[in-house]
């Protein structure tokens, strides 16, 4: 597949397959195309070439299979919604057009908040939570979507140890349920620890493969050029 913005930036020749339960780390320098790839999969920017297939057939976004967990900076924290409202948005697609989420959807939203340690805090406005808790709200929203693919955009940035562990549990939980997790991140330690596969992007497609065999000093040098000191 390939994707890009206007005529100025184009990321092409990307091709990889990830099985159910894979955790794929998207790595590369700034401007290397991590976000572009994530946004192309999310459908925010159109594909320029190729296609994305899910379970053997072309991906249809309106089936609600994709959950996107945005970066903190990309969320409008002044929007008048409570934590519970945000999580409930994960059920909107399942509810369908026009219809409102029902009691079952509310129960699932409440359960997801509880699973992420935010039980009983669903009525608070989203700006009244700490950074780590705010990320948990969006993880809860991804959970209730019951997706087949989860996209995480720089999830490890600026979170403390406790929230990091929560994030690890959620990612592991998704993988156990057969969900494909794509993580765009700068945090190479997390890539080594958490992922089953890596996809290296440096303005072009560099490499894809199991973390064990692909996450090597050679690939990293090819991906980051001279920007990274590799201590093997």
């Amino acid at each position: 597949m390939g994707a890009g913005y206007g005529s100025t930036f184009h990321l092409g020749g990307i091709s990889f397959q990830a099985g159910a339960g894979s955790v794929v780390g998207l790595i590369g320098p700034n401007g290397g195309g991590k976000s572009t790839l994530l946004k192309a999969v999310a459908g925010v920017i159109p594909l320029r070439e190729g296609q994305i297939r899910l379970g053997g057939r072309p991906l249809r976004r309106n089936e609600g299979h994709i959950a996107f967990v945005p970066q903190r900076e990309e969320v409008n924290w002044d929007f008048p919604v409570s934590a519970g409202d945000v999580v409930l948005m994960g059920r909107y697609r399942a509810a369908g057009w026009v219809r409102r989420p029902g009691a079952e959807d509310r129960r699932k939203a409440g359960a997801a908040l509880a699973r992420l340690g935010l039980e009983g805090k669903g009525n608070r406005h989203i700006s009244q939570f700490s950074g780590g808790q705010q990320q948990r709200i969006f993880l809860a929203r991804a959970l209730v979507q019951e997706p087949r693919v989860v996209l995480l955009d720089e999830p490890f940035t600026g979170i403390d140890q406790e929230n990091r562990e929560v994030l690890h549990q959620v990612i592991a939980g998704f993988a156990r349920d057969g969900v494909i997790v794509l993580i765009a991140t700068h945090d190479l330690d997390e890539v080594a620890a958490m992922t089953t596969h890596v996809c290296c992007l440096a303005g072009r497609f560099v490499a894809f493969g199991p973390t064990a065999s692909t996450f090597t000093p050679e690939t990293l040098r090819a991906t980051f050029g001279g920007q990274l000191a590799v201590f093997a």
């Binding site: 946004k39 999310a42 459908g43 925010v44 249809r60 976004r61 309106n62 089936e63 609600g64 994709i66 959950a67 996107f68 945005p70 990309e74 969320v75 409008n76 929007f79 919604v81 945000v86 948005m89 909107y92 697609r93 996209l151």
Partner: peptide
């Protein structure tokens, strides 16, 4: 209004 990225990813 709240999250256009999510809206797009939901089709």
């Amino acid at each position: 209004a709240f999250d256009a990225t999510m809206a797009r990813s939901l089709g």
